[in-house]
């Protein structure tokens, strides 16, 4: 039971992950192209999985009505909209509003098709969702945002750098990252007691770095810098 619960949560995480990756592709290309790649790569993946597990054409698929095939073209618009919106209003708000739209249109569809259901639960549920949308729609003027990938500045986008960027909360070029570590190592050299010096210097370095670069939050890079300095016990030569 716990395993299946975890799998269900993982499925939700993967939905969000897919939207973020598509959104990143849309930043470099277009939302529609991102949707195209999402579909063709997914098609290839499902084809391989179906060849391994078998049973792709089991049942009576030819008996399904013609309109059931419209799910694909609708999905293209849906994926394109998601990858366009995620850079505009953020992952959380995109997810939230899509959920709200899905739930409310589901209720409308249920009523239109005459599906039985608890009227009170529907009224309360839809009311809460509408209230949530109203609250979310009022813009927060003091929201702290920073720009993401910028085409004019080539970022180092290897998986490790992405992880580092996530921790440092700022897209960082390879050159700046090496500068970062080198300066940290130089500062360490000046400290008297080496290992306590590493901790203290990492701390002060993170503070000054975040101040210089106007990072929205401070100190998240501290463990990373401390680790980097500990790994470079012999400080990098300043060239």
């Amino acid at each position: 039971m716990i395993i299946f619960g975890t799998l269900a949560v993982l499925a939700g995480i993967l939905v969000s992950l897919s939207r973020q990756i598509n959104g990143r592709l849309a930043l470099s290309t277009t939302a529609m192209e991102s949707s195209f790649w999402n579909h063709i790569v997914g098609l290839g993946f499902i084809t391989i999985a179906a060849l391994i597990f078998g049973g792709l054409f089991a049942g009576t698929p030819q008996a399904s009505p013609w309109w059931a095939y419209l799910g694909g073209p609708i999905g293209v618009i849906f994926i394109a909209a998601g990858s366009w919106l995620i850079a505009k209003i953020g992952a959380a708000q995109t997810a939230m509003l899509i959920i709200a739209g899905q739930m409310i249109s589901g209720v409308v569809l249920d009523i239109a098709m005459g599906t039985a259901g608890n009227t009170w639960a529907r009224v309360i549920g839809v009311g809460l969702i509408l209230a949530g949308m109203w609250v979310g729609q009022r813009q927060a003027a003091n929201r702290r945002t920073s720009e993401g990938y910028r085409p004019e500045k080539r970022c180092n986008e290897t998986p490790l750098a992405i992880l580092g960027n996530g921790i440092l909360r700022r897209p960082m070029s390879k050159r700046r990252l090496s500068q970062f570590v080198r300066t940290a190592a130089l500062r360490t050299k000046r400290s008297l007691s080496y290992d306590t010096g590493i901790a203290a210097m990492s701390y002060s370095f993170c503070r000054s770095f975040n101040k210089d670069h106007k990072s929205p939050t401070s100190m998240n890079a501290f463990p990373l810098v401390a680790l980097a300095q500990w790994l470079c016990r012999r400080p990098l030569s300043p060239t």
Binding site: A87, A91, A92, T145
Partner: peptide, 28 residues
């Protein structure tokens, strides 16, 4: 229900950190 929970929590985390080169946004 569990899928919605996973989706929302991961989206919030990704927004806070600005994962995958997308704009970073601190939720209010």
């Amino acid at each position: 229900a569990l899928g919605l929970a996973g989706q929302v929590i991961f989206s919030l985390f990704a927004d806070m950190r600005g994962l995958f080169g997308l704009p970073q946004r601190m939720p209010t």
